[in-house]
């Protein structure tokens, strides 16, 4: 049986893993809340976020082909992150404009198929442009292990947890207490009514995509601090898992996405610790099917009945 210390360590591992899921899940849940669309390509935006952090660093000379790689100073690292956020936000908005908006009234399945198409397109374009071999993310902070009571975590993971908490708090404040946030909530309630009340629905939708994609970019950069390996397919699994997290928490609900992400991360780690890692990858999907059957509205979602 598992020792308590080990269990606590697994919970801590899961917290860091779940934070990244949460950051990606927020994008899924926001888009779904407004458009009822599963933005399948969101995992790929996460992947692009990591690459958008990588390329400028390479151009700036932080990724020489040989020799010691210099550490990126903190201000530059921050700038790189903001750059990646902006680039991803732009991509998110463009994808919505070009691919999803024309299909807004065409039914949810057409939009879903298109989203799958975009996802496959981004993956394979990345394969052609960035090549299949993995790239190293530049060194931004020195990894050190920090002992916190019974658990030992690297500082990078603590940073991931910290930044996620900060971003979530900011997002929550924005949605709750600003006019834009109110407009967003109005759109997710009823797009038609919102537009009648003078809300520029298209602008709000673009904004939703921009914010969600920027969050995914942050996740991409953050995960690269801890796991500095970039591949064109790196978005696939975290994307799917984050989607599971969003459903788990109740798709459409931002606190739900955060809770779902953390929960999924912790459950995966603990199951991996208790039952062995062989089947822990299946946990997310079993959990998904169970939650869809037992409580499709998720932990925090509002249950709606289909109108007749």
């Amino acid at each position: 049986m598992l020792a308590v210390n080990e269990l606590l360590q697994q919970v801590a591992n899961g917290l860091a893993k779940g934070s990244v899921y949460a950051l990606i899940a927020v994008g899924y849940t926001m888009v779904y809340g407004v458009l009822e669309l599963i933005n399948f390509a969101h995992g790929e935006v996460f992947m692009l976020g990591a690459y958008f952090g990588y390329w400028p660093a390479r151009w700036l000379g932080y990724m020489p082909d040989s020799g010691e790689k210099p550490q990126v100073p903190a201000p530059v690292a921050l700038l790189l992150t903001f750059g990646a956020m902006a680039a991803c936000a732009l991509i998110g908005v463009l994808v919505e404009r070009l691919a999803y908006r024309p299909l807004r009234n065409a039914g949810r399945l057409s939009a879903l198929i298109t989203a799958i198409g975009i996802s496959v397109l981004m993956q394979n374009l990345a394969l052609v442009v960035f090549h299949a071999d993995s790239k190293d993310f530049p060194r931004m902070i020195d990894q050190q292990s920090v002992v916190l009571g019974p658990v030992e975590l690297p500082n990078t993971k603590l940073l991931i947890i910290g930044v996620t908490a900060l971003m979530m708090a900011g997002l929550f404040w924005m949605v709750r207490y600003t006019r834009t946030g109110a407009a967003m909530r109005a759109c997710s309630h009823s797009m038609k009514t919102a537009s009648l009340m003078g809300v520029n629905v298209n602008r709000i939708i673009s904004l939703t995509f921009a914010i969600g994609s920027a969050m995914a970019a942050v996740a991409g950069v953050l995960i690269s601090l801890d796991q500095p390996r970039l591949t064109p397919l790196m978005g696939l699994m975290p994307g799917l898992k984050a989607f599971v997290a969003a459903v788990l928490g109740g798709i459409g609900s931002i606190p739900g996405a955060v809770a779902g992400g953390i929960l999924l991360g912790v459950v995966e780690s603990v199951v991996g610790g208790v039952a062995g890692t062989t089947y822990s990858e299946a946990v997310a999907f079993v959990l998904l099917i169970l939650i869809l059957l037992v409580r499709p509205s998720g932990l925090f979602g509002k249950s709606g009945r289909e109108k007749v």
Binding site: I38, R108, L109, L112, L240, F243, V244, V247, A282, A284, F285, V286, L288, I289, L292, L293, P296, E306
Partner: peptide
């Protein structure tokens, strides 16, 4: 059976992965 549309799609995706 209890799921519709995109939820069903995701559940079947999960099935395939499992």
């Amino acid at each position: 059976l209890r799921l519709r549309g995109d939820y069903l799609a995701i559940a079947t995706l999960g099935f395939g992965e499992i």
